[in-house]
């Protein structure tokens, strides 16, 4: 049993963020231990993070727990944020969604949700349009979602909001797995094009 030599970074790279990325700049400061910057970051991101978590998890108390976990994780990982791999907001929404999904799936493992899932599949509804506030962003996202075919929209919504895997979505919609996979892909490409580069 021996001790390996000290580690050296071969290509140390400075942490960088897009100058226009205000959230990224806050995250950068938070990564250096700046708690007040993290407080500002929380104010910027909390509605989005909690919105995603609530949409997926649904239970309000459990959603608060997950939102709390997401922010502690953002704090823990702040120094590892890499601005060359997307915006801070995108990073946070990815982490929020992943955490929400993990929670839902671990809950699901201990509970049979088939009945509710089946009902949801029979009457898929426009989840976003039904619940969001009427801001410009919301209107834009709603318009973009409306450009998707029914199957594309259902597949994307059941996956992203419902927390289902694409295989589960295939069962819910009664179509082939390959079809769901390509509808999700087509749907996201369409969404991306509709939303343009205004992220």
């Amino acid at each position: 049993m021996g001790v390996l030599r000290p580690l050296r970074a071969r290509h140390p790279e400075p942490v960088s963020v897009d100058p226009d990325d205000i959230v990224g700049a806050l995250l950068l400061r938070a990564g250096r231990g700046d708690q007040s910057a993290f407080g500002e970051l929380y104010d910027e991101l909390a509605p989005m993070v909690h919105g995603v978590v609530l949409k997926v998890v649904r239970d309000p108390a459990m959603s608060e727990e997950v939102t709390q976990e997401v922010f502690v994780e953002l704090w823990r990982l702040a120094a590892r944020f890499d601005g060359t791999k997307g915006t801070a907001r995108s990073w946070a929404s990815t982490l929020a969604h992943r955490r929400a999904i993990d929670r839902v799936r671990s809950e699901q493992a201990s509970r049979d949700r088939n009945d509710r899932d089946a009902q949801r599949a029979v009457a898929p509804h426009d989840v976003v349009a039904a619940e969001v506030e009427t801001t410009l962003d919301v209107a834009r996202v709603r318009r973009a979602l409306a450009q998707l075919s029914d199957l594309q929209r259902e597949a994307v919504e059941l996956a992203y909001f419902g927390g289902h895997t694409y295989r589960e979505v295939a069962v819910l919609l009664g179509v082939a797995e390959g079809t769901v996979k390509s509808r999700i892909r087509d749907g996201l490409i369409r969404l991306r094009d509709e939303l343009g580069g205004e992220a």
């Binding site: 708690q35 993290f38 407080g39 929380y42 104010d43 909390a46 509605p47 989005m48 909690h50 919105g51 995603v52 609530l54 949409k55 959603s63 608060e64 939102t67 709390q68 922010f71 502690v72 997307g86 915006t87 907001r89 995108s90 946070a92 929404s93 990815t94 929020a96 969604h97 976003v128 619940e131 969001v132 506030e133 801001t135 962003d137 919301v138 834009r140 996202v141 709603r142 979602l145 992203y160 996201l188 969404l191 991306r192 939303l195 205004e198 992220a199």
Partner: peptide, 24 residues
């Protein structure tokens, strides 16, 4: 992910104010 971050933004729902204290 950038696209879904925009969709996520449209879902915005502020958590209860007390959550910030717990996070901090």
């Amino acid at each position: 992910r950038g696209t879904m971050a925009e969709v996520a933004g449209a879902l915005s729902t502020p958590p209860p104010p007390s959550l910030k204290d717990r996070v901090m």
